[in-house]
Design a protein around this nucleic acid. Structure first.
Length: 471
RNA sequence: GGCGCCGUAGCCAAGUGGUAAGGCAGAGGUCUGCAAAACCUCCAUGCACCGGUUCGAAUCCGGUCGGCGCCUCCA
């Protein structure tokens, strides 16, 4: 049951084998931290978090690197002000304050989505020296040229350019939009280093004058610095394939580094059929969303579609996911945490096998989740027929797979007052049971209804009342 | 214009050559004082449409229609 992953570079499913036995190096392109984290930022980190957990499950040691772009790159192809500077002026703070603020906002949002922190989070601004070094190497190799204190990668000198995105370099010339005043020799060339205009805020000294690094170079540098010149997996959003990843690849290989072996790209999220994008003013910010939807529901919902499929974020679908997760959670809560008699360890071996086969098949999380729904149904049936050992084993299985691999909390959090809440609700339920015993149903229903106004749902079972909180 | 992706039930969504997973919603039933939850049963002779290949196609090939992405910053 080897793990198969779809490699964008070969455009096919390939069996994954780590370069160095027992160790995996993964690099994922993170966001440019200049604005609030939105839903589009969530899919990749969640998918890679599951991949990371799955690899670790196989006994592999994973070094997971996610960069954060904190150099403000251009808002368009001209020499207009960069995104960070623009935001800094808007908020009347330093560009670095903008980066800092949204850096933490991003990781706070990821925390709430259950995304484990990366092993290393390098920032572009902390690796300017290394970027300059790589640019110098490219100049030595004759793959780049200096022009008006800026440095550009010479696409015509690198015949493999286009190998990742499947583009023909020759045809790229016509497709590229005409640039007004550019120092480039060829419109396909891309900036490795840009000369800073007098008013440009973020600037560094370089052999070519004061300036700032191009967007693509940071990833070539930071990935290889921490993972080696050749490493296992490089991930990013599908919209980064061209030009970002194509350029990264050209730079790295041009400098003699074999670079990433597997390229994984997750598909976009759409809203009303259109790509969620900042430029269209068309995004769902995460923190406002968390006000009304449990972040775990968001995670669960995103995992209910395959990472390479387009996923439309419709409220109706989200509610369906919330209802589905509620079912899994209430099933889990109804299973004993340990059975009196010996629990059959192999009770759910078939489910475990199906789950593993699903994830091994290019991380097919929807299928893996379907297995868990099957387990929920079967375990509930076992529970109802008194087979508590089986139900307890299902609970352990959920701890292992739903919680451990998919990263979905099985218990909805009750907060710090969980114990007190339990005692108080228990007291009220005693009163309600007494009322029911004397067939005073009006009183019993009144208690249930009042509890309902606090989102405490009461359910009567043959073993007495059970309660739970709505999300 | 170039490159590429997608179209599966009311909704979401797997399946990519062997006779349509799963979830939500809905219908009926068991249980219940009534509910809720849970469980049982039902819910696409068909996978945008038209041709073709094949013993066999949602899955492969060709075409048509519809939607979308990248080619500019983007997760």
């Amino acid at each position: 049951m080897p793990l198969q992953l779809y490699n964008s570079l070969s455009r096919r499913l390939e069996a994954f084998e780590p370069l160095v036995p027992g160790r995996v190096g993964m690099y994922v392109c993170g966001p440019t931290v200049y604005a609030e984290p939105h839903l589009g930022h969530a899919r990749g980190p969640i998918v890679f978090d599951v991949l990371r957990r799955w690899l670790e499950r196989q006994g592999l040691s994973v070094r997971y690197v996610t960069n954060v772009t904190d150099v403000g790159h251009l808002t368009d192809d001209g020499d207009a002000e960069d995104k960070l500077a623009k935001r800094a002026k808007l908020e009347r703070i330093e560009p670095m304050e903008v980066a800092e603020k949204y850096f933490w906002a991003y990781f706070d949002a990821m925390d709430r989505l259950g995304v484990r922190r990366p092993s290393i989070v390098p920032r572009a601004t902390g690796h300017v020296i290394e970027q300059i070094e790589l640019i110098e190497t490219l100049l030595e190799h004759g793959l780049a040229y200096v022009s008006n204190e800026s440095v550009y990668f010479d696409v015509s000198s690198w015949s493999a350019y286009g190998e990742l995105s499947g583009r023909d370099p020759a045809e790229l010339v016509e497709g590229t939009r005409v640039e007004v005043r550019s120092d480039k020799r060829d419109p396909r060339d891309f900036a490795l280093w840009k000369r800073a205009d007098a008013e440009h805020l973020m600037r560094w000294r370089s052999p070519w004058g004061e300036g700032f690094p191009g967007w693509h170079i940071e990833c070539s540098v930071m990935s290889t610095k921490y993972l080696g010149d050749e490493f296992d997996i490089h991930g990013g959003g599908l919209d980064l394939v061209f030009p970002h990843h194509e350029c990264e690849l050209a730079q790295a290989r041009g400098a003699g580094k074999p670079f990433a072996r597997f390229w994984l790209h997750w598909n976009m999220l759409t809203l009303g059929g259109e790509k969620m994008s900042k430029s269209k003013g068309h995004v769902v910010d995460l923190f406002p969303l968390f006000e009304r939807i449990d972040p775990m529901v968001v995670r669960f919902h995103l995992l209910r579609s395959h990472y390479r499929s387009l996923s439309d974020f419709a409220d109706e679908a989200l509610q369906a996911s919330a209802a589905g997760l509620r079912r899994l959670r209430s099933a889990y809560a109804s299973w004993p945490s340990h059975a009196g008699t010996g629990t059959p360890a192999e009770a759910w071996s078939e489910a475990r096998r199906r789950f593993a086969a699903a994830l091994d098949n290019d991380l097919n999380t929807p299928e893996a989740i379907a297995v868990l729904f099957d387990v929920a149904r079967d375990a509930n049936r076992a529970r109802d027929s008194g087979d508590l050992g089986c139900a307890a084993a299902a609970r352990a299985l959920f701890d292992e797979l739903l919680v451990g691999i998919l990263g979905i909390e099985a218990a909805s959090g009750e907060g710090d007052h969980a114990e007190l809440l339990g005692a108080v609700v228990g007291l009220l339920l005693e009163q309600r049971e007494a009322a029911r015993k004397r067939r005073d149903f009006a009183a019993a229903d009144a208690i249930r209804e009042r509890l309902g106004t606090f989102d405490v749902v009461v359910e009567d079972t043959p073993d007495g009342p059970r309660w739970r909180r709505l999300d």
